[in-house]
């Protein structure tokens, strides 16, 4: 992916700042709400760009270990889902649940990190 700076992440950050600093203070009501929603969505994109690659690599490694087969993330997640539904994973519940919890925690760290910490 040949690219100059500003990187995609820096561009998304610029758009998020534009929405937060220039748009949000000047709109109200439904538009203000949707501006906040948009800012949150871009923050998800930023976190994904920063951390998603490492998370994907770790998830892929866990899936290969768990399933004992090779493939990309989509293939292996499909295979794991079918195996769970068929009851084929019932013998490895401990490792399976550990993997699923880690994966869900990673996803939530991207989608809504505040969810992982109670309000103080």
């Amino acid at each position: 992916m040949p690219t100059d700076r500003p990187t995609a992440a820096e561009l998304v950050e610029a758009v998020r700042e534009f929405l937060a600093d220039d748009v949000a203070p000047n709109v109200e009501g439904q538009l203000a709400f949707h501006t906040r929603v948009a800012i949150n969505a871009l923050a998800i994109v930023e976190r994904t760009m920063a951390q998603g690659g490492a998370m994907d690599a770790a998830e892929l490694a866990r899936l290969r270990e768990l399933l004992g087969q090779d493939g990309d993330l989509a293939e292996l997640n499909g295979a794991l889902s079918r195996a769970i539904r068929a009851g084929e994973m019932d013998g490895k519940r401990g490792a399976l649940l550990e993997h699923l919890r880690q994966t869900a925690q990673d996803k939530i760290a991207l989608a809504n990190p505040r969810y992982l910490t109670p309000r103080g």
Partner: peptide
């Protein structure tokens, strides 16, 4: 809808909580 597409990512909140409830 920006609102609807954003709610999509909240699915993982249910998934995360679910996996903490089950054993």
């Amino acid at each position: 809808s920006l609102e609807k597409v954003s709610i999509g990512r909240r699915a993982v909140e249910g998934e995360y909580d679910l996996l903490r409830l089950v054993d």
